[in-house]
Amino acid sequence: MLQITLIAGARPNFMKIAPLIHAIHDLQNSGHAIKYRLVHTGQHYDHKMSGDFFEQLEIPDPDANLGAGGGSQAEQTAAIMIGFEKELTANRPDVVLVVGDVTSTLACSITAKKLLVPVVHVEGGIRSGDMGMPEEINRIVTDSITDHFFTTSELANDNLKKVGVEDHRIHFVGNTMIDTLLKQKPRFQRPKGGVFDGLDKGDYFVLTLHRPANVDEEAKLKATIEAILAGTGSHPVLFPVHPRTAKILKNLGIKHPRLHYLEPLSYLAFNYLVQHAKGVITDSGGITEEASVMNVPCLTLRDNTERPETIHQGTNELVGTDPDRLKPFLEKILAGDWKQYQGIPMWDGHAAERIVKVLYEIYH
């Protein structure tokens, strides 16, 4: 019997884990001896992550919640490691699977390896080259102790080979986040009430901001929002506000008839808005992947990206963090003069099936 422990620490992690759970269930139903245990570290507390959240993704509630939210980076890392050590001691698996690049990914990888449990990393090998990002440190440290890597791009494969990872440990499988997107797309739900009732498809922009470079300085955030409003013509701008950003926005008091602050939305509602947007403006990596596959123009307010395939083959452009650079990109979107999605290899909705098949072959 192959026993896998799946780790998730933040909301996007569950979108990456969900198709793996579905693929494991499919193997179980075909008579294979495989089981999993889903561990939520509690790294990000999100009131939207209720039973409805797991129901939307069609996965069960986690088997364990380590409750390690809050505190500094060091405090959170320590709390996750202490909690996960107890979890592994009580429920030792054959392999621990981590996804992405959050603190939980790093902390659980270290804990598992010190207990001599193999670690596999889904989304291994991606790099931004920016050591000022906590996520970049998490990726590098996790990959330095990972046993097998499941990658989303050829560039990720190359990054791993450059640091001496052998070919047989690298598995180019695609993107489980896109597995979830393609599976759930028919179930996307238009939000009800308020601004949503008057929205026309293709007539609004979606904005998300949460990275320190964009939101920590009040003057910079104000200039960014003003540049977006100046460049989006007569179109509404829908802004689901991250808790980190909400505190700073409250001090700024920016109001505009076309700017609509929203509470965080469910997965199905948010992606409905992205799917039908005129354009997306974001500093999130995952949203650039989803927007690209849905062929929606996307502007990334960052100076670098660990997902260059969304630029070369997707609909994403790297604008930078200077608000003055937004205008020509927004003009192109308004003119309808934007590049089209070219298709990204292996982003076909079957990455999780490939991952679980490889895991079964290696560890069963």
Score class of each variant (00 low, 15 high):
8 A>D: 00
13 N>M: 02
14 F>S: 10
22 H>M: 04
26 D>N: 11
30 S>Q: 13
34 I>S: 11
44 H>F: 00
46 D>S: 06
48 K>M: 12
51 G>E: 11
52 D>A: 14
56 Q>I: 03
56 Q>Y: 03
61 D>S: 12
72 S>V: 13
77 T>Q: 04
78 A>I: 13
80 I>N: 11
84 F>W: 00
86 K>M: 04
90 A>S: 13
99 V>R: 06
102 V>D: 05
103 T>F: 14
104 S>I: 07
121 H>S: 01
127 R>V: 08
129 G>L: 04
132 G>H: 07
136 E>K: 06
136 E>I: 12
144 S>T: 08
147 D>C: 09
155 L>S: 06
157 N>Y: 01
158 D>I: 09
169 R>Y: 02
206 V>F: 05
208 T>G: 00
221 L>G: 13
222 K>F: 00
222 K>G: 00
225 I>G: 05
231 G>N: 04
233 G>R: 06
233 G>Y: 01
235 H>D: 04
242 H>C: 11
254 I>Y: 12
266 S>G: 14
267 Y>E: 06
275 Q>M: 13
277 A>S: 15
279 G>H: 02
282 T>W: 02
291 A>G: 13
293 V>T: 10
294 M>P: 11
300 T>G: 04
303 D>F: 01
304 N>C: 10
307 R>L: 08
308 P>K: 03
313 Q>G: 01
314 G>N: 12
314 G>E: 07
320 G>A: 09
320 G>H: 12
324 D>N: 14
330 L>H: 02
346 M>H: 15
347 W>K: 11
348 D>M: 08
352 A>L: 06
360 Y>I: 15
